[in-house]
Computed example of a mutant assay.
Amino acid sequence: MTSAAVDGTRVLLVGVDFGLPHFDGELEELGLLAQTAGLQPVARLTCKRKAPDAALFVGSGKADEIRTLAQMHGAVEVLFDQSLSPAQQRNLERHLEMPVNDRTLLILEIFAQRARSHEGKLQVELARLQYLSTRLVRRWSHLERQTGGIGARGGPGEKQIELDRRMIADAVKRTRERLVKVQRQRATQRRQRERRDTFNISLVGYTNAGKSTLFNALVKARAYAADQLFATLDTTTRQLYLGEAGRSVSLSDTVGFIRDLPHGLVDAFQATLQEAIDADLLLHVVDGSNAGFPEQMEQVQKVLREIGAADIPQILVFNKLDALAPEQRPPVLEDSYDMDGRLLPRLFVSARSGEGLDALRRALASRVLAAAQDGMPPGDDVELPGATA
């Protein structure tokens, strides 16, 4: 699918509703992901099922409907919003007679396009190798099993598949070893910061919540920021001076999270996400203008639990205040929010216009001073004045 990023391949988007609460009936996010990867969505189709069909995921009747709709709109590829098993992907391609890909590969392709640092490229490569290793037969026709001589099973094709699997395994091993070296370098940098008694803050949040824009506004950096999914992948760390605290803190901008983030990426990006794991405080940036923000917040919390960062103190930063209509603006810009039974301080800001950033800096300074003066764990939940959501 890499070529799709170049020629704007026309794709048909397909989503299956299995009764889960986060189902995107309009396939809006999948469409944004496709456009981010350079694809051109030309039609969308959704259906309901109690469970995935073992062979075709959607069943033969719906598969026929997909093929007809694709032909009608000139789509040359089908993109599913859910992850497909290797067998389902292979069977669908044979049935539809066109390439079929899923949400997992799409996210991997976007990460491959966007990774800039040496570490980021290694992490993406590892995740892609792990994903493709399960799809060897589907990806390369010369790997199909061939029948050997009389009474024999296997033959040249089987030997080729064994060879390619070994090559993939070797590549995974080499990439892991190179990543370990990078992780050691990062660990050394973190130890140096700890020796300097640095207070570490990490920005986390759903992709396109405005983390990089907020990061730039706070530290006046020039990290890449754009109104698109996964605009930035590589962790950037800068010093942020807090006048009220009379000292600087370390502020890191991390990769954005997303629903159904491939587990391979969670594992592969452990080094990048380590900045969040080792933080003294997390700034959980939320797109306050998005009606689906509660679901996005839960997805972020889910990933934080997976990487072992769920218990790190958080401040919720509801961004994009400037995008709210006057009647949607909150009555107060500082309050508290109940997140899974945990009362978290919340601030409303606009990273674009700067509104609310002074209050955010004061809140950060208060955390730093409390940690330094009272000797308590940095950032123990401190309730801000105001209403509770």
Results as ranks from 00 to 15, higher is better:
D338I: 06
E334L: 13
H263M: 11
G148D: 08
R90S: 14
V6D: 13
S3R: 12
S60F: 06
Q113F: 06
M72I: 04
Q183V: 07
D53W: 04
N290S: 14
R196G: 06
G19I: 01
L203P: 10
R90H: 13
Q88K: 11
P262F: 04
T213S: 15
G205N: 05
A5D: 11
Q146F: 02
I150P: 09
G74Q: 09
L316D: 10
R166P: 01
S212P: 06
E306I: 02
T198Y: 02
Q40F: 07
S336A: 10
E383F: 10
R139N: 15
A63M: 01
M376T: 15
E158S: 03
H284S: 08
E306P: 04
K220R: 15
A187C: 00
E144M: 14
A279F: 04
T68I: 14
R184W: 05
R190D: 02
F111W: 10
T232V: 09
V317T: 05
L96H: 02
G375L: 04
A43M: 01
K320Q: 04
A245Y: 06
R342F: 00
K181E: 15
R346Q: 14
K48Y: 08
L27C: 09
S60Q: 14
L69E: 05
H95S: 09
L33D: 04
Y206N: 11
V382H: 08
S85H: 10
E26I: 01
M1H: 07
Q296G: 05
K50E: 15
V137C: 00
V285W: 07
A371H: 09
L281V: 09
A5S: 15
I168E: 03
A323S: 13
A309G: 02
G246H: 07
L33M: 14
A87E: 12
I277H: 10
L242A: 04
L143N: 07
T207E: 03
I168D: 03
S83K: 11
T232G: 06
S248D: 14
V42A: 05
I107M: 11
M98S: 06
F230S: 01
L108D: 09
K320P: 02
R184I: 12
T188F: 07
G256D: 01
L13H: 04
A363W: 03
D374W: 12
P156E: 15
L106Y: 09
S353K: 08
Q270D: 14
S212L: 01
D102P: 08
V317M: 05
L265R: 03
L13P: 08
G15N: 07
V332N: 10
H22Y: 14
G243P: 00
Q89C: 13
T235E: 04
A359R: 13
K173Y: 10
E65D: 15
F215T: 05
E306M: 11
L316E: 05
L79Q: 10
L233V: 13
S83G: 08
S252G: 06
F215E: 00
Q88L: 05
P313L: 02
S336H: 07
S248I: 00
A363M: 07
L347G: 08
R222M: 00
E77R: 14
P330D: 07
